[in-house]
């Protein structure tokens, strides 16, 4: 198969499992984001792909061939978070560093400088460049070896907000243009949404969700994904014979098909709306704040917290009835 295939990768540091049974695939030319909070193991997975760490279990395949060589022999390019440009070499020498003797250095250098829009900068040293320019050199340096897979570690984290949007577009364009299979690590949802074709969410060393950006936002399906999305309510409930035995009493229409066990009910803030009529879900306002468009209220409902959006102010202590948009409620079963 063309592209990258990761099968059952596990890795422990001492007694701490960092990655557990990670599998994923990205097709040739696809850009995939590894999204997760710090400590989720996403950077370790990237380093395993680059050959800088060895997995305890599992296999890697790139374009149908096993990827198990030492780092220096892998057809994989890596762009570091801090760029790791060699400070004693010029832009041109940095870009040419990884090229082999067989490669046509002047032509590729010119091509790369054009690609990352740095023509005329070849004689500068890294410290004479801005952060965004340094990053483009790092990308050019990795792409100059014509890798089959490009890895980027937190490519946007060192850039300030205004530059970030621009760089996302630039990188996206470069990757599309070279049609390189790529995989980048990020903790920022917006980065992932803006650049990736496919997003893999890692939590506690596990692959919890693989989806396209719109799919991920509509159906997080996992509490960790909902937490990353923000603006999603999470209710812990226990089901016994189709009814809520513990937690907020959700309508039986929803819970009836569920087997006995622990669940997390996931729904966006705006799927729980304050109602003018009396509903079975009564709650008390804990506090609320103005969010720029309306109010975000934090409500206490049967000892659980539910957040909601409201056009009107929600005074603390007021009683509010909630109406649930049932089609937007998803259940995640705990094992």
């Amino acid at each position: 198969m063309e592209g990258i295939t990761v099968k059952g990768i596990s890795k422990r540091f001492g007694n701490t499992p960092v990655l557990t049974g990670i599998s994923l695939t990205a097709a040739q030319g696809e850009c995939m984001a590894l999204l997760g909070e710090s400590g989720s193991g996403k950077t370790t997975l990237l380093r395993i792909l680059a050959g800088l760490e060895t997995p305890d279990q599992g296999t890697l395949q790139l374009n149908g061939i096993a990827l198990d060589q030492p780092a220096e022999q892998r057809p994989v390019g890596l762009v570091f978070q801090d760029y790791a440009l060699f400070p004693h070499l010029t832009v041109a020498k940095n870009i040419c560093f990884g090229m082999t003797k067989k490669q046509d250095k002047p032509t590729i250098l010119k091509e790369m400088l054009q690609l990352v829009d740095l023509e005329g900068f070849q004689k500068r040293y890294p410290h004479q460049l801005s952060g965004g320019q340094q990053q483009r050199v790092a990308i050019a340096r990795a792409l100059a070896t014509k890798p089959d897979l490009l890895l980027l570690d937190e490519p946007f984290s060192n850039l300030d907000a205004s530059l970030r949007k621009q760089v996302r577009q630039e990188i996206s364009a470069i990757l599309k243009h070279t049609h390189t299979t790529s995989l980048f690590v990020t903790h920022d949802l917006e980065d992932a949404l803006a650049v990736a074709d496919k997003i893999v969410v890692l939590a506690h060393g596990k692959n919890v969700r693989t989806a396209s950006p719109p799919e991920l936002c509509r159906h997080p399906k996992h509490p960790a994904v909902a937490a990353l999305l923000g603006n999603w309510n999470q209710l812990e409930i226990t089901i016994r014979s189709g009814k809520v035995a513990h937690g907020v009493h959700l309508p039986e229409r929803l819970t009836a098909p569920l087997k006995d066990g622990q669940y997390t009910a996931l729904f966006p803030y705006d799927a729980a709306r304050p109602s003018s009529e009396k509903t079975p879900l009564s709650s008390r306002v804990d506090h609320s704040f103005y969010n720029g468009h309306g109010f975000t209220g934090t409500l206490l409902c049967q000892e659980s917290v539910i957040r909601t959006f409201s056009r009107e102010e929600l005074p603390a202590g007021a009683e509010v009835y909630l109406e649930l948009e049932e089609k937007n409620i998803q259940f995640y079963a705990h094992e």
Partner: peptide, 26 residues
């Protein structure tokens, strides 16, 4: 920074070559 070693390795250089081309000049 050890990042420079890793960058060098991912660009296809062996350890001896890294010593000569990165560490010595620095």
């Amino acid at each position: 920074s050890t990042r420079l070693d890793e960058a060098g390795r991912s660009l296809g250089r062996k350890k001896g070559s890294l010593l000569l081309r990165i560490h010595f000049p620095l």
